Computed example of a mutant assay.
Amino acid sequence: YLSLSHHFLPNPATPLSQPMPRCCSAMILNPFLVAMAVAFTSAVTGCPVLCTCHSQVVDCSGQRLFSVPPDLPLDTRNLSLAHNRITTIPPGYLTCYVELRVLDLRNNSLAELPAGLFLMTRRLAHLDLSYNNFSHVGADMFQEAHSLVRINLGHNPWLRKVHPQAFQGLAQLRDLDLSYGGLSFLSLEALEGLPGLVTLQIGGNPWVCSCTMEPLLKWLRNRIQRCMSDSQLAECRAPPEVEGAPLFSLTEESFKACHLTLTLDDYLFIAFVGFVVSIASVATNFLLGITANCCHRWSKASEDEEI
């Protein structure tokens, strides 16, 4: 202590107003800078147990994890949690990872995502949610994930519903995979807000090719440039007259019955036929009643004669 004090005391021959040399300031501040640097480095480079980390890629796939690993490196760009047994993701889990570009959650047991999961991951471009247990895609599922280019929701066998605003605000989305789920209907509104959509995979779903499907098919023919050889996999499950038919083989003629309109003459004819049928029904019931009454009297008269 005395030795250090001796070096830091100003020279009596030096005026007190002279500033302290830079090396002295550096010696005082260095311990704090080193401590901060060490703390920052450990936060950035620390790798979770059972995961491997290299060049901003964190791979935790195939580790039989039941929950997501905590404390990922802050500069993570590619995160793989595939082939595990994860059932839930905590709210705000991705808040600190603003550099995240790729998130792979395929082949887990996820049934839903917490609201606002992607609020801070503004650079997320690729999201894989395939082979999970999602039953619906909500309106706020991808909230604020405006940089998404690809979403894979394929092979979710319980997926029955996609909200009309599920993909709202995803103007950069190019590839959307909804194949091999339980979808029987998809609202046109869910796709109209995707100007950059190029690839849409919808095969392997039990589509109901009724009149409600016509707007979607018409839009697909006009907007989608290619369907990744998916057109032959998309088949109608109902109604019976088109069961097994490729979805994209349906034409405007297939939906001709959906556009039939009735004229005034048609309504008058239907009213006349209904009136005639009603009169005929009343007359038939009247005749049947008379016949039954006569039969009853004849039977009673026969019994009286025998007595």
Rank of each mutant, 00 (worst) to 15 (best):
Y1E: 10
Y1G: 11
L4P: 02
S5H: 07
H6L: 10
H6Y: 08
A13S: 07
P15C: 04
L16S: 07
L16Q: 08
R22G: 11
C23A: 13
S25I: 00
M27D: 06
L33Y: 12
L33G: 13
A43Q: 01
V44F: 01
C47Y: 05
V49M: 04
T52H: 07
C53M: 05
H54F: 07
V57A: 07
V58E: 00
R64C: 00
R64N: 01
V68Y: 03
V68A: 10
L72F: 03
L79R: 02
A82Y: 04
H83R: 09
T87F: 00
T87E: 10
P91A: 03
C96A: 01
Y97S: 05
V98H: 08
L100P: 05
A111L: 03
L113S: 03
P114H: 06
P114L: 11
A115V: 13
L119F: 00
R122D: 04
H126M: 07
L127W: 04
Y131H: 13
N133G: 01
F134S: 02
F142L: 12
Q143S: 13
A145K: 10
H146N: 14
L148S: 13
V149P: 03
H155G: 01
K161H: 12
K161Y: 13
V162R: 02
F167H: 04
G169I: 00
G169T: 07
G169Q: 05
A171D: 05
Q172A: 14
Q172W: 05
Q172N: 14
Q172T: 12
D175I: 14
L178Q: 03
Y180F: 09
S184Q: 14
L186F: 07
L188M: 14
P195K: 12
G196R: 10
L197I: 13
V198Y: 04
L200S: 09
Q201F: 06
I202H: 12
G203P: 06
G204R: 00
G204T: 00
P206W: 04
W207P: 03
W207G: 00
W207K: 00
V208F: 08
P215L: 06
L217G: 09
K218D: 15
R221T: 12
R223H: 14
I224T: 09
Q225F: 02
R226T: 06
S231G: 05
L233R: 12
P240F: 05
E241D: 15
V242S: 07
P246Q: 04
P246N: 04
T251R: 08
S254V: 10
H259M: 10
Y267N: 09
Y267R: 15
F272M: 14
V273E: 07
V273C: 14
A280L: 15
S281N: 12
A283W: 05
G289V: 07
A292N: 14
C295V: 13
H296K: 14
K300T: 11
A301K: 12
A301G: 09
E303A: 12
